[in-house]
Design a protein around this nucleic acid. Structure first.
Length: 501
DNA sequence: GCCGTTTTCGGCCCGACTGTTTTCAGTCG
């Protein structure tokens, strides 16, 4: 098991302890351990072999012994036993809004309800009303929650809701009713997939809050506060929850209480006029919203090692582009015009290769015709450059799907997987590494193959692939399609790079 | 289960909201 798998296993243990009604702080200890392991530098095996587990903060005797067992046997009896004692359906039930571990436990133990289907039926038969702490409204909410879950996952692509949120913000600003207005929550953090739109605004006096459902089906929370509270509220509602928790933890150790109304030292408000000041009071550099996930950013801020994020204006050009030659919607000329209008100084054209039948992959003749067209355009625009490329399929054996004499004609080659997604982990890793090793390959396209809200990433040793890319000096694509998005975050850490996916 | 300029026991982040209660437990972000 690698760090990610162990981290996930401990997370599940915590969940199961909650379902069993164990001491909640015991469950939290497992959550903390899960987080610690995920962020651990180096190989977990080395810690076990060198007896250094006890030195890790958050890992004590009991969890240390479990890690020892995992590393030595590849499994954990404590986990397996726990898992066997809890019906699978209970995990599903936890996803229903308003249902937490305590209520699920009661429903399971008192009514012997083990799945969402059974729960739905129990609601219809009014059986939840007999339970202590349950009433008509609770039962109705659970029933509604199940119905909503059945027809709708309640998740949206960032690209779908970003402009809606911007539009609402613009309307609020133009209304003249609010002095300041900002999108917060997961959209401000630029999460790939979001559940709702959070927004804050300030007015002269008084506070209020409202929730509405937009036509697109997404919920929007608007919180209105007085101006003085703005930075604290902005920070609080931007989250993430995990980031806020870690920040409060740190503050508490400094004798400071943090909530959405301010920072307090012995009940006295510490005045801050911006998020920068809030972080500064806590001894931290400013942390950009995009990395507020408690993935090590607080430690980085303390050591003045916050990475410089790429901004829109940093982007001078882009390489992965399809035209109507394959499955794109626009001509080469139209793509060039659009890129010029965006202020880009170059683009790389990379239509699909011949194996991608579904996407009308290019034959040799079509390639020749496109290369000629690109040359004509490069003659026409002296201040703009079009690079000749191709998105070549990585075949199941790791080879690219054109011969050398064709691949040689391009300025760059993107190698991507578009078929046979279900290879075993080792085979898939081998396949990608072989493609990276190919002398014609310039970059690896969408390395995990995931489609947000639609298709899971394929089985893959991502770390090994990143190492191979570094070894062969190849580029890994940061994909900007709203359905794929970055896939890999490179976090500057010491000399090396760390993949978080 | 973990931790300790609160140090070997007693605490573990914070507040709002909801629904069930009649003072609070559970859930959520």
């Amino acid at each position: 098991m690698d760090k990610k798998e162990i981290s996930h296993l401990f997370e599940e243990i915590a969940l199961m302890l909650d379902l069993k009604g164990e001491n909640p702080f015991k469950a939290r200890a497992y959550i903390n351990a899960s987080r610690t392991i995920e962020l651990l530098e180096g190989d977990i095996k080395d810690y076990v072999v060198e007896g250094k587990l006890v030195e890790i903060k958050g890992i004590g005797k009991a969890i240390g012994e479990k890690l020892y067992e995992i590393v030595n046997t590849g499994s954990l009896k404590y986990y397996t036993d726990l898992r066997e004692s809890i019906p699978e359906g209970l995990f599903e039930m936890l996803k229903i809004p308003g249902l937490g571990p305590k209520k699920v436990k009661a429903i399971y133990e008192k009514l012997d309800v083990k799945s969402i289907g059974e729960l739905e039926y129990a609601c219809i038969e009014n059986r939840l009303l007999d339970l202590e702490g349950f009433g008509k409204k609770t039962q109705d909410n659970i029933f509604k929650g199940i119905e909503q879950m059945k027809k709708f996952k309640g998740q949206f692509l960032l690209g779908e809701v970003f402009y809606i949120a911007e539009e609402v913000k613009r309307l609020i600003q133009e209304s003249g009713l609010a002095d300041r207005c900002e999108i917060t929550g997961s959209i401000r953090r630029r999460k790939e997939v979001v559940k709702d739109i959070d927004m804050i605004a300030t007015i002269a006096k008084g506070t209020t809050k409202s929730t509405i459902r937009l036509q697109s089906g997404i919920n929007m929370d608007l919180r209105v506060v007085v101006d003085k509270e703005y930075p604290y509220v902005l920070n609080h509602f931007t989250g993430s929850k995990e980031h806020n928790t870690a920040v409060r933890h740190r503050a508490k150790a400094m004798g400071i209480k943090v909530n959405e109304y301010g920072l307090f030292h012995e009940e006295k408000l510490i005045e801050c006029h911006s998020e920068e000041e809030i972080y500064h009071v806590l001894g931290l550099d400013y942390i950009p919203p995009e990395i507020r996930e408690n993935n090590g950013e607080i430690e980085a801020a303390e050591k003045h090692q916050i990475p410089i994020l790429i901004e829109l204006q940093d982007i001078k050009g882009t390489f992965h582009m399809h035209t109507e030659y394959s499955d794109g919607s626009n001509t080469l000329e139209e793509m060039v015009q659009a890129a010029r209008n965006m202020g880009l100084s170059y683009i790389g054209i990379s239509d699909h290769s011949r194996s991608a039948f579904y996407a009308r992959g290019l034959s040799k003749d079509e390639i020749m015709r496109q290369l000629e067209e690109i040359e004509e355009i490069n003659e026409k625009y002296k201040d703009f450059k079009v690079f000749k490329g191709i998105e070549s399929d990585i075949l199941p054996d790791g080879s690219l799907d054109y011969e050398d004499d064709i691949l040689e004609m391009f300025d760059f080659v993107i190698a991507s997987v578009h078929s046979n997604f279900k290879l075993e982990k080792d085979k898939m890793t081998e396949r990608l590494i072989k493609a990276l090793k190919n002398k014609h390959t310039t970059m690896l396209g969408h390395p995990t193959g995931r489609i947000l809200l639609a298709r899971k990433e394929y089985e893959l040793d991502l770390y090994a692939v990143i190492d191979a890319a570094a070894e062969f000096k190849k580029v890994i694509e940061l994909n900007a399609d709203p359905h794929r998005l970055v896939e890999i975050y490179a976090v500057r850490k010491g000399k090396g790079c760390k993949a978080v996916n």
